[in-house]
Nucleic acid binder design. Structure first.
Lengths: 224, 224
DNA sequence: ATAATACTCGAACGCCTGTTCTGTGTCAAG
DNA sequence: CTTGACACAGAACAGGCGTTCGAGTATTAT
């Protein structure tokens, strides 16, 4: 009954156009013209570009200011400017396992997410597969992280000494954020607050590193 | 010798054009045309707009892609996209007074500053006269703020109970970040970490509120 | 006063750009 | 096979838009 040409919603060309607009805008700070889109996407006719642009507008991926040159803008979670979008996968709390990114967490799930300015991002892990978690409860206080804070993590299964990691201690059924140190007899999980004592783990105890902490953001609007 | 028409660097019209471009871009996600600038800035001729645009380009406030419609972009500290630029006025540490914004801190001082996504901003204090300070030393640990953290503040001389404020205790020659509570016999400055004891102040002791904490950002790249 | 400089206007030129129309080839349903 | 929706190309049109030029008006220096 229903005919499917290439894929259901977005064809390869739709995606290519969308990507080009985003990269062009990022570089030039203004959208491309129809003809420029055509050239860079291998479309020889302006009418075809217009054809796709109309579809993208119908699907809600794009907004157009008709009659205005370069009058288009990407909608939805395509951050313009120099910022990064990080999906908030869930909450992190002491007694619960850590949600980690699934394979297809980059899909069009317009789930909850936050935007972070590129210029704030440490090192060059600019927006690989970063993800964010909202801290629930006050169990991370010894990591100097409060209830309601947002932690941005980079997925990882292991870590170097001195890195702050999110770990799941299955033996203790506990999630925690600590500085990671491997020692001869096991592991040491050091709180950020030097006045607090580290957790010492024997090699036999399970320790699952879920990610490295890249950034912590605390919005202080808990007053009224 | 030197002739000064209106002001030295930027005339009123230059500023008006700059502001219009910024607001137009923020709303439409693409730059305005020369004619649009003319209309909204009270300039009847496109050549005059072009005239000012050339000057702005020469002064480095603008970049132009000649021959390309709407081919202009603001340079310097004019964040595109939906983000906010907050100037970093200095450091905050226990033994030093708190730098606060001067009257003309919005001028073209291309000093150090950070960008924060609009969507991260609490409440509607979107970028009034916010400013940021870099925390130096570990004296703010009881506010769950670590060495190297960036705190974003809103200027204030007083506060409501329960708000986190940056205060300067001149009697003790001390700067600190605490939750503020006014009590019958004085003030109570409560650390964020509930396991730590508050500072009790008599009414006679000087307490200068310098700002309210709006946000805390911690970049965790202290590993290599 | 005179000249120089800064600023403003209006109009015209021509490329840039979005729009529209006609035509072609493909593929699946009837 | 025929039909029709779909994907695409090319050309032509009209208006958008940056550019340029000639000219007029202030303001300032000499």
């Amino acid at each position: 009954m229903m005919m499917v040409r290439k894929s259901k919603g977005l064809g390869e060309r739709h995606q290519k156009i969308l990507d080009f607009i985003a990269s062009y805008q990022r570089e030039h700070k203004h959208p491309p013209s129809i003809r420029e889109i055509g050239i860079h996407c291998g479309i020889s006719s302006t009418s075809v570009v217009n054809y796709y642009l109309d579809q993208l507008e119908k699907n809600g991926h794009l907004e157009r200011d008709r009659k205005i040159s370069r009058g288009m803008r990407l909608t939805g979670n395509t951050p313009l400017g120099d910022m990064f979008r990080v999906p908030v996968l869930g909450v992190i709390q002491a007694g619960e396992p850590i949600p980690i990114p699934s394979s297809d967490f980059n899909t069009f799930t317009a789930e909850d997410s936050i935007e972070v300015a590129m210029s704030l991002m440490p090192t060059k892990e600019k927006g690989k597969d970063l993800f964010a978690l909202k801290v629930q409860g006050e169990s991370m206080i010894d990591a100097m992280i409060n209830d309601g804070d947002i932690v941005i993590l980079k997925p990882a299964q292991d870590a170097h000494n001195g890195e702050m990691v999110a770990v799941w201690l299955s033996d203790r059924n506990e999630t925690t954020l600590k500085y990671y140190f491997k020692e001869k007899d096991g592991y040491r999980l050091q709180p950020a607050n030097p006045t607090m004592k580290p957790i010492m783990l024997k090699k036999t105890e399970a320790l699952e590193i879920k990610g490295k902490v890249v950034m912590v953001i605390r919005k202080v609007d808990r007053y009224n």
